[in-house]
Design a protein around this nucleic acid. Sequence first.
DNA 1: CGTCTCCTTGAGGTTGGTCAAACCAGGTGG
DNA 2: CCACCTGGTTTGACCAACCTCAAGGAGACG
Lengths: 244, 244
Amino acid sequence: MLSPTPIRVEPLRTACSSCNLRELCLPLGLSESDMTRLDGVINQRRTVARGQTLFRVGEEFHALYAVRTGFFKTCVNAEDGRVQVTGFQMAGELLGLDGIGSHRHTVDAEALEDSQVCVLPFDELEHLAREFTALQHQLHRIMSREIVRDHGVMLLLGSMRAEERLAAFLLNLTQRLQARGYSASELVLRMTREEIGSYLGLKLETVSRTFSRFQDEGILEVKQRQITVLEPDALQRLVSSAAC
Amino acid sequence: MLSPTPIRVEPLRTACSSCNLRELCLPLGLSESDMTRLDGVINQRRTVARGQTLFRVGEEFHALYAVRTGFFKTCVNAEDGRVQVTGFQMAGELLGLDGIGSHRHTVDAEALEDSQVCVLPFDELEHLAREFTALQHQLHRIMSREIVRDHGVMLLLGSMRAEERLAAFLLNLTQRLQARGYSASELVLRMTREEIGSYLGLKLETVSRTFSRFQDEGILEVKQRQITVLEPDALQRLVSSAAC
DNA sequence: CGTCTCCTTGAGGTTGGTCAAACCAGGTGG
DNA sequence: CCACCTGGTTTGACCAACCTCAAGGAGACG
C-alpha cells in the first residue's frame, strides 16, 4: 500500500524579487532582471532557533546572511572572556560582513528569537557583482554604511553618558522598527538588560536604573521588555544635547 | 626676454606597481598586469599640510585616498559639538570608505603632519573591480577589515579600563609601525593627549596620568611625545588580562 | 623674551560600577 | 492548584575610576 503523497503544499520559494523586504535589503535598487539573476544564487534558507548561533568566531566564512524574520545579536570576545555586543540585527539587515577580510567569522551571531535567514554565498555574490553594477554598488553601500554605523557607536561609547546612550539606542531601534512598518512608540525588546548594557558599554544595573529614571520622568513606560515611548522628543533632546 | 624654462626635473610618477607601500596598500595581491591597469586610474596626488583637512563631513564623495606619507586622524561630530576621533591612519592605509554609502563624507580627515595621499577615483576603481577579481577581493577585504577594526575599538571603549585602553592603543600603533619597518619600541606620537583621549574615550588628563603611571612602573619611557616601550609584555598582559 | 600650545599634577566631585537582597513572570512538577 | 525554581529585573548602599577644575611647567617659535 502506498503511503499517501504528502499534501503539504510546497510554499512558493520567496525570491528576492517578491520579498517584502527588498526595499530594505540587498536587492534595493536592482532592476527586475538583475533581481531575477540574484534570485538564482539565493536559494537557501536557514532557520536558527532562539539561543542558537548562526555562526561563531573562527568558523570559515562562506556566505553573508540576510535576516528574513527574527532578531540577532553579534558579539566579539576578548582574550580574557569579556564580551562586547557589537550590534543587533533585524529583518532586512545583513550578517557576516566581518568575515570577508579574513575568510573567517570574527563575531558570534546569535538569534535572540526564532529566526530565519537567507544564505548569500559570497563567491557567487562577488561574481554577480562583477556582472551588474547595481549589485556592486549596493554591496559597497551596505559595507560602507556598516562602517558609518560603527563610527556612531564609537561616538556613543566614547563620549556619551548613560542616559544619552540609552536614549540613542531606543531612538535607533524605534526608527528601524518604524522603517519596517511597526509602531514608533511601542516596542518589545528582544534582548536582556545585560545585552543592552554590553552594547552600550554599561552594566545591566545601570541600564535598569536608567529605564526607571526615564519612566519616572514620564519619557517611557517600562513593563519589563515592553516599552512605550511617551516623549520621543525628550529622547531626541538627550542625544543631541551638550554633554552637560 | 623669455623667462627661463623651469629646470625642475619632473619627478618620476610613483606608480602603484613600483610603490614601496604596495604590500600594505590597495595593490596587495594584484598581478603585474593588474597593477599596471591600476596605475592607469591612480594618477593624482594630493599634499595636505599639517592641520589641514583632506575632506570634511558633508563634502561630496568622489574618491578614496591612500596615505603615501604622513599621518591622519578621522573624526565624527555629534550634533552638540562633541567630537570623537574614530581612527588614525598611516602610510598604506585608506581614507574615505565611510563616504561610499551616502556619496558624502561622514568624517573629517585631518593631517596630523605634512602628508601626501594618492587619489583613487571611486567610479574608476569600481569599474576596474568589475574587470579583475583580485582588485574586487582586495577592496572587499579592506572594507571588511575596517569593520573588524571598528569592532575592536567598540570592545575597547565598551569594556576596558583606562590602562587597558592605552596599552591596547600603544600596542596597535607599534605593530603598525613595525609592519612599516620602524622600531617596535621607539615611537613618536603624532597626536596630542587630547586626540588620544578622544579616540580612547578618555579625558586628556587621564591619558597623561596613565602615561605617567606606565613610566613609574617601568613599562614606558615618556618624554612628551617620544615614547620608548621598555616592557611590551607588560602592555600585552594588560590588554589580555581579566577586567579585574 | 613673551606667547602659545601642549602636557603634567593635584584636590575634590560625580557617574557608573560592585555587591547584595528582593522581586517578578513564566515554567515545572508534585 | 500551588509550591517551587529559574532567569531576568529592580533597587539600595557603598565605592572606585574617571572627570572637572585649577595651577604650574616644558618646548617651540616669532
